[in-house]
């Protein structure tokens, strides 16, 4: 396994060789993910790992896909989605067209959850969602929209807790093991690769969701990402971050107003 010092060297090599900059990621999390990757691929030390990454391009792509944390769920933090419907949706209604950015969308769970609620609140028709992630595997999986049935009991519970009125199953086509989201929920979503570290603004969006992504960055990179969101929002646009994340340490803190302190929903005011 590798030490914190070897980790720094490894990230430096990756930056030089592949132009992916992980140097401002959380070191503590990186260390865990790299150990996990080495475990799965039976690599013993930093030398093994470096050798494989440099000499085998397929391994590198795999590495990117596996060191990021894609764990997500439908309607994660139901209280958040409830608040979003109550406090943000009424504002969105006033716009003729709505753009939403779901940044760090993982396998699409969050994006489709949002889309279901937009549909139920009659906002679906005028909304376009841009869902992005650094991992190409995540983007592919999101486009497919196929999920294991084992977790659906929990998803259904979440769905009702956030105020869902229909039957969640009706939004999916299922076989005994998997469920696929109905194609109508894919039509207004554009899934694409976007790296919050390196890529810039691509669209003005009235609502940005970036939840449980910033925890993987150090404060420096968090700040950079938050500035990017700030630039992508019009005045009165909304930003939602993860429940245990904070704007407090960022340079744009003063430019936002708290809409829901607990659920970490903010509005750009200047």
């Amino acid at each position: 396994m590798i030490t914190l010092k070897e980790l720094d060297e490894l990230l430096f090599t990756i930056k030089k060789q592949f132009d992916y900059d992980f140097s401002d990621y959380s070191k503590a999390s990186m260390l865990r993910r790299i150990h996990r990757f080495m475990d799965i691929h039976a690599m013993k030390n930093a030398v093994d790992l470096k050798f494989e990454l440099i000499n085998n391009p397929a391994v590198f792509q795999n590495f990117i896909n596996e060191i990021v944390v894609n764990v997500s769920e439908f309607f994660r933090d139901p209280s958040f989605f409830k608040s979003l419907q109550q406090k943000v949706f009424p504002y969105l209604e006033s716009y003729p067209k709505i753009n939403i950015w779901s940044a760090g969308c993982s396998f699409g769970e969050e994006t489709y959850s949002l889309n279901i609620l937009l549909k139920e609140n009659n906002l679906y028709a005028k909304t376009r969602i841009y869902a992005t992630d650094i991992s190409s595997n995540a983007i592919e999986r999101s486009r497919k929209g196929i999920y294991d049935n084992t977790n659906f009991k929990e998803y259904t519970k979440n769905y009702y807790e956030c105020g869902g009125k229909e039957s969640l199953n009706d939004y999916f086509v299922s076989d005994p093991r998997h469920s696929m989201i109905h194609s109508e929920f894919k039509q207004n979503i554009l899934f694409s690769n976007h790296n919050l570290v390196a890529d810039g603004v691509f669209k003005e969006c009235q609502l940005i969701l970036c939840r449980n992504v910033l925890i993987y960055f150090n404060s420096n990179l968090q700040n950079k990402a938050l500035e990017l969101f700030y630039q992508s929002l019009p005045i009165h646009g909304f930003l939602a971050i993860g429940k245990k994340e904070s704007l407090r340490f960022s340079s744009v803190y003063e430019n936002f107003k708290e809409i829901d302190r607990e659920e970490k929903i903010y509005q750009k005011i200047k």
Binding site: L4, K27, A28
Partner: peptide, 19 residues
């Protein structure tokens, strides 16, 4: 916090993790 792993960084700040 419920539902997060807790990690420590070299500068003694906490990182949360949902892996």
């Amino acid at each position: 916090p419920a539902d997060y792993h807790v990690l420590l960084e070299e500068d003694y700040t906490f990182s949360l993790d949902v892996s």
